[in-house]
Design a binder for these strands. Structure first.
Lengths: 204, 204
DNA sequence: AGTGTAGACGGACTAGAGTCCGCTTTCAAA
DNA sequence: TTTGAAAGCGGACTCTAGTCCGTCTACACT
């Protein structure tokens, strides 16, 4: 620790100046409150800036863009999921067979999506595929890839990991739930089933 | 025919006025040319309007929004794919077993994506999930759903269809190809494999 | 304490998407 | 041919994301 970390890591930030750190927190808190209160789609960056008591430029300096801010917020929420994966009890934590761990993980992700669909929509909507290059997606992908490799050593797990995660795209989730009226449970089951099938195939 | 069709169908348009039809074509042609020449990400709606010799309002009246215009363009491109599905030779056309037809279809979609990734990005980026409510996605989904049902009558094919299509999201495709440097072929194979596994499972 | 400077700040500015509404055109019916 | 009005037109306008750059400040080093 102490060295530069990525722009979206909300933890301790290297040699960040005191005022910068204070503003980072203020922005994150303000954004979190506004998003929670009004829904992520109905909050503008200027409103966040005003609520946080900083200029708009400061937000962009810290978080690159709107979706970067959303990612930073998610990154916080995500810590508990990461924890569950690394040290939690099976089936999501270590100890269960890979296929079951994958199913548990995908299920957990679906739950996360149910709670934060709008925020994740914003995060994923960043132009130029920022989302896929960010921390959060990278950690999901890595986890899935490792589990897949355990279940199917000979497959192209690096690529399949992305295929397994794709059904959890936030916009798709919202469409299924809000436009088509599917129960969250039903969506979760389908996503888990798809993932399980990809992981559970014979040898390839 | 002759009755009102959906706003994105570029074919004959019900009781459309002559000037309206002329403008529709002009817009579609101008957009098509500009997109081809400069890449869909680098063309603004105003530029299209100017090139087509119409006001910007006309574009929005006809196509709802930027992504609606992209969808209309795709809808044209898509006709040949639809034709191949309905009357073409196996394995993509009728005659082959469902699993093989699905694999062929997903493969064809991946090829389409390779050729029109930027356009599809624009189409999918419409706010509020317009893409998922549009013609093009609906036709893909229906086709996949039917094939899945044939292969796995007892599964929740309506929902699994979306899961099978998800890996072909344009932004993901571009990320894999442009950021991660994967060969189109490799992406296609992975998408096809994932789809096949979902379709090919025992009984559920 | 004094000071040089990397880094941070903020708000005016730009650019592009999407809306609005008064004017014009088509066309069907008389 | 006239005519009424539904449909279409277009460009000024609004709203928001994201950039730019002159000013300011924390803090490391003396």
């Amino acid at each position: 620790m102490g060295t530069r970390s990525t722009p979206f890591d909300p933890g301790t930030h290297g040699g960040e100046r005191a005022d910068a750190a204070r503003n980072r927190r203020a922005i994150l808190d303000a954004a979190s409150a506004l998003f929670a209160e009004r829904g992520a789609d109905c909050v503008t960056v200027d409103q966040i800036a005003e609520a946080a008591g900083v200029g708009k430029g400061t937000i962009y300096r810290r978080f690159t863009d709107r979706s970067g801010l959303a990612m930073a917020l998610l990154d916080q929420t995500d810590r508990e999921l990461q924890h569950a994966i690394l040290r939690g009890p099976p089936p999501i934590g270590p100890g269960a067979p890979a296929g079951e761990r994958l199913a548990a993980f995908i299920g957990a992700l679906a739950d996360l999506l149910e709670r934060h669909a709008d925020l994740m929509s914003v995060a994923e909507s960043g132009s130029g595929g920022v989302w896929y290059r960010g921390n959060v997606y990278a950690s999901y992908r890595l986890h899935v890839e490792v589990l897949l490799r355990e279940a199917r050593p000979d497959a192209d797990c690096a690529t399949l990991a992305d295929m397994v995660l794709a059904p959890l795209a936030a916009d798709l989730y919202r469409h299924l739930r809000d436009d088509r009226g599917l129960e969250p449970e039903r969506i979760r089951v389908a996503a888990v089933e798809a993932a399980t099938l990809v992981a559970g195939a014979p040898t390839a």
